[in-house]
Each structure stands twice: as C-alpha cells, then as structure tokens.
C-alpha cells in the first residue's frame, strides 16, 4: 500500500464508522428537541437547526444516505460503463460504431442538468437517485475501458485465442473483462467521489429523498429555511465539510490505486 491509499482508507473507515453509528441513533423525529438555532455548546456539540434538531445527530444520520447512494450509484455506473466499454472496444464494426456514438453523445450532453430533469420526473427516493446516477454517469468509464479493450485486442494472448477459434463473446467475458478490472476498479473509487457530490447536489436542489436525509439535504434546508441569512454557520459548515472530506478521501484512494497501476501521467485529469 502506498501513502495515498493509506490516507484514503483511514478517512473512509472513519466515515463508514460514522454511518454505522447512525443505526444506533434511529430516526430524527423522536428526539427531544432543543432550542432552535442554538450555537455549539456542551449539550449540542455542533449546535441546532431551525427546528431544534441536533446538527451532530443529523450529520451522523446523513452520512448513511450520502455514503450508500454514492457507493451504489458508482457501482451501477461502473458496471454499465465497463460492459459497454469492453464490448465496444473489442468488437469493431457496427457494434462499436453504435456504442461509440452513444458514448460520444452522452459525453457531450451536460450530465448534471440531465440528472436534474430525470430526478424531477421520478419521485424523490433513495433508489431513484441511485438509478439516475447509475444511468447517466457511465460515459467516462466506458471511454477509458474502451481504450484499454482496444489495446488488449492486439495483445498476443488474445490473438492466439482467436487463432485457436475461441468465440469473441467468450474472449470478452473470460479474458477482456478480467483485464480491464484494474482500470474499472480505480474508476469505481473515483466514481464514488463523484456520486457523493452528485447526490449532494441533487439533494441541495431539493430532489433528495425526504425520508432519508443526507448531507446535501442539510445544505438544502440551510439555504431554503434561512439559516444562511440568520448567520447560523454551524448548520451548514459541518455537512459541507463532511461532503468535501469524504469525496476527497475517495479521490486520494483512487489516485493511489491508479499510481499503483502506473496507468499514465495524464491520469490526474481523468479524475475531474
């Protein structure tokens, strides 16, 4: 393990621990409420919001949704992107042309606005946000995997398999996919970081799941219920900080993984 991987994993472990704590807290509704907008004190270490809810508790509960949506959204988008990329890169001809055009089209269409539109049509729920991210965040992964599959195609061991008469479908699933797993897993970790930011953005706009509040939901309420204008900084600094630190931890881990693979000097720009 290199230094970046260690830093990334330790931060992520802390956040996961926090998310596990949330199961002990339960639901926010049945707490005894404190005074509204009380600044940080011994009783409420991070203060309270406009409803008198404890910010620290909201933060711990929010970590669960933010992490889970980020993880599942990234998982779906990586699976879709890897399969499309591997198929497109390995099969030249019509399939590659069609998939290539689809990848290009979805790389050009701005993702965030499209996600906002799709999420607005679907009812705001945990799984719908996961689906929106999964369906719309795969093109970059597909492009990277496609390039790698393209290289693999002319690798000697694949050529010998072809000469031996192995079917292309067999080669793709038995030999190409396992060989793009490295690039796909690094991509997955980076996608978690993106998915956490996207979930936060959608929730900030008001498209989050109301029954599963996340860190983005806290920022949404700070904005719409006037905590910002009230100057209650303790209501929005912690969730924003949590989003940034978590997203950064996944970026650091992803960069560490990419470094290990020595993919290319340009890997940094694929992160953003």
């Amino acid at each position: 393990m290199n230094k970046m991987e260690i830093i990334g994993i330790s931060i992520i472990s802390c956040i996961i621990f926090m998310a596990l704590l949330s199961f002990g807290i339960g639901s926010i509704i049945d707490f005894p409420k404190s005074k509204q907008y009380s600044p940080p004190s011994i009783q409420n270490p991070l203060g309270t919001d406009d409803l008198g809810d404890d910010i620290l508790e909201l933060l711990i509960i929010g970590s669960r949704t933010s992490l889970l949506v980020g993880f599942l959204g990234a998982l779906f988008s990586t699976i879709i992107g890897t399969i499309i990329g591997a198929l497109s890169g390995f099969f030249r001809g019509v399939l590659d042309d069609v998939l290539g055009v689809i990848i290009d089209v979805f790389l050009v269409i701005p993702a965030l606005p499209l996600m906002i539109v799709l999420a607005a049509y679907l009812s705001p729920s945990f799984w719908n946000i996961v689906i929106v991210i999964g369906l719309l965040w795969w093109p970059t992964t597909a492009r990277l995997v496609r390039a790698r599959a393209w290289q693999l195609k002319s690798a000697p061991f694949i050529e010998s398999l072809l000469a031996l008469g192995a079917s292309k479908t067999y080669i793709v699933f038995k030999h190409v996919l396992p060989n793009v797993l490295g690039i796909a897993s690094a991509r997955f970790i980076l996608s978690v970081s993106h998915a956490i930011l996207i979930e936060a953005g959608l929730s900030f706009i008001g498209l989050g799941d109301p029954t599963n509040p996340s860190w983005g939901t806290m920022l949404h309420f700070a904005m719409t219920r006037g905590a910002l204008l009230y100057g209650a900084w303790w209501t929005f600094i912690p969730p924003g900080l949590a989003i940034s630190i978590t997203s950064l931890a996944f970026i650091i881990l992803g960069m560490g993984l990419e470094q290990r693979q020595k993919l290319s000097t340009r890997s940094m720009e694929d992160i953003i």
Binding site: A200, F204, L219, M223, P239, G240, S244, I245
Partner: peptide, 11 residues
C-alpha cells in the same frame, strides 16, 4: 474539485 460549489458559495 471535491468541494461542492454551492457550499463554497454559502461560505
């Protein structure tokens, strides 16, 4: 890049 732009704006 890992800082949400709207949160930066709020700060």
């Amino acid at each position: 890049h890992s800082i949400p732009s709207y949160w930066f704006a709020m700060l």
